[in-house]
Design a protein around this nucleic acid. Sequence first.
DNA 1: TAATTAATACCATATTTGTGGTATTTTAAA
DNA 2: TTTAAAATACCACAAATATGGTATTAATTA
Lengths: 201, 201
Amino acid sequence: MIKNIVIVDDHQLFLDGICALFNKHDDIKVLLATTNIKDAINCIDSENPHLVITDISMPEMSGIELIALLKKKQPKIKIMVLSMFANIQSYKDIDAYLLKETNEEELIFAINEVVEKNRKYLKIIEDKEENIILRDNNVLLTTREKEIIRLIIKEHNTTAIAEKLFISTHTVMTHRKNIFFKLEVTNIAGLTKKAFQLGII
Amino acid sequence: MIKNIVIVDDHQLFLDGICALFNKHDDIKVLLATTNIKDAINCIDSENPHLVITDISMPEMSGIELIALLKKKQPKIKIMVLSMFANIQSYKDIDAYLLKETNEEELIFAINEVVEKNRKYLKIIEDKEENIILRDNNVLLTTREKEIIRLIIKEHNTTAIAEKLFISTHTVMTHRKNIFFKLEVTNIAGLTKKAFQLGII
DNA sequence: TAATTAATACCATATTTGTGGTATTTTAAA
DNA sequence: TTTAAAATACCACAAATATGGTATTAATTA
């Protein structure tokens, strides 16, 4: 069985590499490997691939949003996430989850598991010390919250953010509280980490 | 001219990909592509490659430390950094600096520039908004400082860190101050970002 | 051995954060 | 159009951070 794959990742070199790698496998056909999410969505719509490989952290659109969108359009499509990080907030729509530390063998194995055998392959390390727990609740921040999170990470404090957005400091604090609750963090260190992992920044 | 290259990166898949990519180029010979820094150092010592490709952020040893070590041992060796981030603290020992968003063409071009033409190829985006400025001063944190930075990023507060390390909160605050000064940040958001970028965490 | 760096400790204080609420208006979706 | 979600604003207060010092004791290196 030939598996048709679309790859979306923000690193061109990663795309080049993974294409070169898949080239060696006759049963895998890369329909498109791109950094452009819109191109990817168009291709997925028209070509109907078996599998989409993507990352969670991407600048334009969060991987989570992309996945939700794709699964909504084509529920049968398989999604593989190749991420830098070992924790995800929502694995609802994800069929395979691998770290970028993975190797060729595991990658090919996971593709077969997901596409041919209709199984899931989720490689997630539950880090007890950091208390990273998987949850099935979608962490979807509002646009305003993302705006604020970006400013926090740019080392702006509450008053600076309030001035920049022409809103009250109280409002900023409220958003902050909501963000903290949604991302399950208790301070800015945790927030910054999560933002990195989710590709918000 | 055949260029002998050693690649060190913490992502196996990246290594696989880049090897597959270099395979197409007859003038490039990958002596070793590994996630293990010690193996890399051994190979570099014995094989004397033209170029070492590495990342700044790696778990075991910081890329900066690795580069400093290599250049000390073999001053003639060329160093290419392939990083996720567009800012570096020290470019003293680095001959080429590319983002992982780069493509095959640029990568090959940069290798030729550095190895054959003895030039530098530093692709650094100076982000004015974030005020990222290149500096030639080595940012080298002490082991204690690194210990503390890791705890801060794990969302520990000053008292918790003091208790964990059996030292006074004052001491923790002093380390904190020194870290902030060295990394040129003003709060934990900046600290966390820098730690990510430098691969401390 | 002299000099330097690393690690430690302490003080003071203004500013900022984090946490606990409540509540209104605007926007978007069902 | 009714309902729900998003964005807004306000209050209070303890806890923690950031910033400005000074200073002593290892440990390491020139």
